[in-house]
């Protein structure tokens, strides 16, 4: 078995607000293997973005990583052996973290407008990133001139399917349509040849037809460069198309995780099962009541005791669900579930 490229272990992130503290991420663990696409699904506010931002140490104030480790396997430079670093231990603004951001791990953030500055051209911003991380293109350490960097950007733009790349390099982000901006953002994320790409809902704001193009592009680039991708979305259809393995999150915890086929065809956690039932399918019966998940997501200040899903769970096992937090346990080939239905109620956290 290959060693994971990234391994998140029991991550806890808390936001201390005036009104109380929010446990946005409450013990999340998952692995990303090299060259693999991990899909993360979950409803709004379940902590997907916060988990991703923790990996890059970009959690907004007043968020704090309270516990856990994020192990990243750094490649050996100049014949040195590989090293495993715990990203949570690095200084937020230190040189090591800055070298990792962009060059090793790139993020396509959730808000597309926020990613580019409106006062510089898209090209300038990417050129700057390339010059900063020139080692990714010139391992010998010799710098890149502006003209050379620009060449790279034009090639990248062509790669991501932007027509007229020579001209588009000099456009401002607000001059680009939604689909083009998304492509430019992908180009930016790929500009430093990261080994891990985190895409936070890259297609939520765009149309299905454009989405289909962007997804095809990501799949192709992933094949070409062998980049590992963490793909966040709340669209189960997109996950089914993109991911090799899936992490289902609920209220800051991993409910279930496993290979994509198992998640869709043999889901174990009641939440995953309910979620899959509740989506209207493009092939199913129409105008009938859809099975729903009862209730609403609890307020972040009001986390339920025990299993966070128990107040809404329709397969609740018994009183232990409200009393203890089930831990994430392997149940099958690569599939793990945190639910008392699938393991002993002594496996708590």
């Amino acid at each position: 078995m290959t060693a994971p490229l990234l391994s998140v272990r029991d991550l806890h992130v808390t936001f201390g607000l005036d009104e109380g503290s929010v446990r946005a991420v409450d013990g999340v663990s998952f692995d990303v293997l090299p060259g693999q696409v991990v899909g993360i699904v979950g409803e709004s506010g379940c902590g997907k973005s916060v988990t991703m931002r923790s990996i890059l140490q970009l959690v907004d104030e007043p968020g704090r990583i309270k516990q856990g480790e994020i192990l990243y396997r750094m490649p050996g430079v100049d014949g040195q052996p590989e090293t495993v670093v715990d990203l949570t231990k690095l200084a937020k603004r230190g040189p090591q973290m800055r070298a990792i951001r962009g060059a090793e791990i790139a993020l396509i953030p959730q808000e597309p407008m926020a990613a580019f500055s409106p006062v510089h051209t898209v090209g300038d911003q990417i050129i700057e990133a390339i010059q900063l991380h020139h080692r990714q293109w010139r391992p010998d350490g010799s710098g890149l001139s502006r003209a050379e960097a620009r060449e790279i950007v034009v090639d990248l733009f062509r790669d991501v399917g932007i027509s007229m790349p020579d001209q588009r390099v000099d456009a401002y982000s607000w001059q680009l349509s939604g689909g083009l901006r998304q492509r430019a953002m992908i180009a930016m994320a790929l500009s430093c040849k990261p080994r891990l790409l985190i895409a936070d809902e890259p297609t939520t704001a765009i149309d299905v037809t454009t989405q289909a193009q962007v997804l095809a592009l990501l799949r192709e680039l992933q094949r070409k460069y062998g980049t590992a991708i963490i793909f966040i979305t709340h669209d189960l259809g997109v996950i089914a198309q993109m991911a090799n393995s899936v992490v289902v999150m609920y209220l800051g915890r991993v409910a279930e995780q496993g290979p994509v086929d198992a998640i869709f065809h043999a889901p174990k956690h009641p939440y995953t099962r309910a979620l899959l039932r509740s989506i209207p399918s493009i092939v199913g019966q129409t105008q009938v009541a859809l099975p729903t998940i009862a209730g609403t997501l609890p307020h972040p200040f009001n986390r339920p005791s025990g299993c966070p899903y128990h107040p809404r769970c329709d397969e609740r096992k018994g009183p232990e669900c409200a009393a203890r937090v089930p831990s994430l346990k392997p149940v099958d080939q690569g599939q793990s579930v945190s639910c008392f239905l699938h393991h002993d109620s002594s496996d708590t956290q």
Partner: peptide
Amino acid sequence: ALMRAVPVPDPRIPVGEV
């Protein structure tokens, strides 16, 4: 074309071309 672009929530259905 619009209907083909909708991602189907089933990994066993192969992804159609764009």
